[in-house]
Design a protein around this nucleic acid. Structure first.
Lengths: 138, 138
DNA sequence: CCGAATCCGACTTGATACTG
DNA sequence: CAGTATCAAGTCGGATTCGG
């Protein structure tokens, strides 16, 4: 796939690829919600699940494991009956909370702006069809 | 979904849902790369494509359209032959560049840390299998 | 040179049932 | 309560092909 190019003219692509990797985790549908929820302190599995409520056990487990793997969250098992597992942010996770919160703040502040842009774009797309988009407009 | 809870202890879930929407766009594999590339000034279609080089026409077009729809980038068509289309960040896009750059900076700084955490996790998972993971260990 | 539409494969996601 | 395994569907993504 990458063969055929003998010169690699874009080293930025190589470095930014790693950034994109991390960003993909952040951009995950549930990751940020979990991180934000854990920002208030350690929580149990079902506690997180109830807090987000739209997530399935599978997705929660998967995301949590990925986060744990990346050193963002810490999993603490209490061998009791019933078993108890707490999740909390590591120092890395708490640090991540800063730029993520900044981005979240941006998103929240510009959310209506983006909504308006979408509406505008949608209206323009409907009024300015580059080709035959409307099969019955004549 | 939110029915069943009479007290709604976490309105953040409802609001953060919107944030997650935006974050999904940011977390898109190509979005950030494009935004960063456009941060250096307006560029043509194939110019972006060559810069990223791992992206297909479809993905570039799709991402660009999504960004345009959200009011992040601006598409300028020059009706010449051959046709020329330039893409540039809007004010919103330039503003987005700030938190995104912060996150990118975080990712770049902690990338080795995350890599190490993954290695650690992987090693631990291999040494500490919670159940029968190895079907042929006897 | 820009871009849209199509076909098809791969990964991701989700509901369920089972285990400890 | 916490977590896993399985099955089916949806979406994403890439290569190709055609039009302006």
């Amino acid at each position: 796939m990458s063969l055929g190019n003998t010169h690699v003219p874009d080293p930025a692509s190589a470095d930014c690829r790693l950034v994109g990797e991390i960003l993909s985790r952040v951009g995950d549908k549930w990751t940020v919600l979990i991180i934000m929820m854990l920002g208030h302190g350690p929580k149990r599995f079902n506690e997180i699940k109830r807090g987000i409520n739209g997530i399935s056990q599978r997705m929660l487990t998967l995301t949590l494991r990925g986060l744990e793997r990346d050193g963002i969250v810490r999993r603490t098992v209490t061998p009791s009956i019933p078993p108890r597992v707490d999740y909390e942010l590591t120092d890395l996770g708490k640090d991540l909370l800063i730029p993520v919160a900044a981005l979240g703040d941006w998103a929240m502040r510009h959310q209506p702006c983006i909504m308006a842009a979408r509406t505008r774009f949608d209206a323009a797309a409907d009024a300015d069809p580059p080709q035959q988009k409307r099969v019955s407009s004549g």
